[in-house]
Design a protein around this nucleic acid. Structure first.
Lengths: 72, 72
DNA sequence: TTCACCACGCAGCTAAACTACGGGCGCGAT
DNA sequence: ATCGCGCCCGTAGTTTAGCTGCGTGGTGAA
């Protein structure tokens, strides 16, 4: 399921930028709980939400869907 | 606005594959009207929807967000 | 002209996008 | 051991946009 992988990718990028979920939420003007839901793949953001996530994480939206294929 | 660019990208890919909106709708099990809305940037698909669009268009999801930067 | 394709306005439903709360757990520092 | 921080989770709720369907009209090709 894509939203799970997306969530993992977002969490990974967030940590790489040394941000807490709270800081993310603040930057995105959304709730901490939602960040958690997204990262766990419970919910997915809207496309407009994706754009905001990408901006805060300083990547292009397509990077959010660029997953590492370690072991195929 | 992202969903507008996304819509244009989707339309472009669809035409490249010689599909009508109706055929897309059929393949996606959704309404023709929704395809039109998406391509015009009026609506954006959900993330789950993105996955389906990508599959029918035979691209990865990230390709839906890969836009040609002609003139910067 | 007809026909195929598509845009658009209008109206509507409902699921999910998003919020908030309380509580619990893991981890690291002290 | 405690404490603070970060995060997960269950529960409950609101709002909105994702998606549907209809009718109508425009455009381009044959």
């Amino acid at each position: 399921m894509l939203q799970k992988k997306l969530g993992q990718r977002i969490a990974s990028l967030r940590k790489a930028r040394k941000l807490t979920q709270e800081q993310m939420a603040e930057a995105l003007c959304c709730s901490v709980e939602f960040i958690s839901l997204v990262e766990r793949g419970v919910n997915a953001p809207s496309v407009a939400g994706l754009e905001k996530f990408a901006k805060v994480l300083k990547v292009e939206v397509k990077e959010l869907f660029t997953f590492e294929e370690k072991k195929r």
